[in-house]
Amino acid sequence: MSRSSRSMEWTPLLFSGGLAFFLFALFAVIPFGDTAMKVGTMIHQQGGELGAANLVTAVVLGYRGLDTLGELAILFAAATSAGLVLSNTRQRTRSIKNKGLGELFESAISLLMPLLLLVGVYIVLHGHLTPGGGFQGGVVIAVALFLPTLARGEMVINHHLIQWIEGGAGALFILIGVAALIQGAAFLQPLMAAGEVGRFLSAGTLPVLYLLVGLKVGAELAALLGHLVEDDEPGVQQ
């Protein structure tokens, strides 16, 4: 680094110091553990009108369903952009020739992968009952799908299939919302009876929505990892 750029560093330092002071002063004022919990209390008082044992799920998919839709769109935008950025390098050889991790890891991972998939699906399907849900489970699923690639050092990710899953799951999420609209209710209004809280089959359409979220997140992350692996060529020098 040149000398001139080193001498300039007091500005960011000053900025960071000022910000630290500002933020500390601010958050010292907030009553910790006793904050205004207006909306939270209202949701509590509604007593699980959506039938979800996990109230966080009720918020994520019910009360703030539009946020979740936007978030899925952000993941989609990131995966699409990453594909766009890295696809320009496609003309170079696509074969990925790293050695893999060896026999031991390969067999271990083939044993582990179905288990991981099972755990992922379990977490997704119980999102309305326990802590967990589509995002957490989706990440586990994505990792399960990605492990063989890591172990064998070759691509096993089918991008066409992934495009269908990510597109289809997102579209179904919206269509379930539109179905409520067609029935005369509001967009993204939870459908079907809430059922008995705590049962596996409860909370109306929320588990279905979470399943779609799980699929989409899984596909999206697998696509992102896949793009990065395809591009990671050992030939490129620093």
Binding site: L66, L69, A73, G167, A171, F187
Partner: peptide
Amino acid sequence: SNSLALVIALPLLAAFLLQP
């Protein structure tokens, strides 16, 4: 008036389905 949400939802739907 609920269909106002479609203004946001339709472009998202179209984007999700575009590549397949």
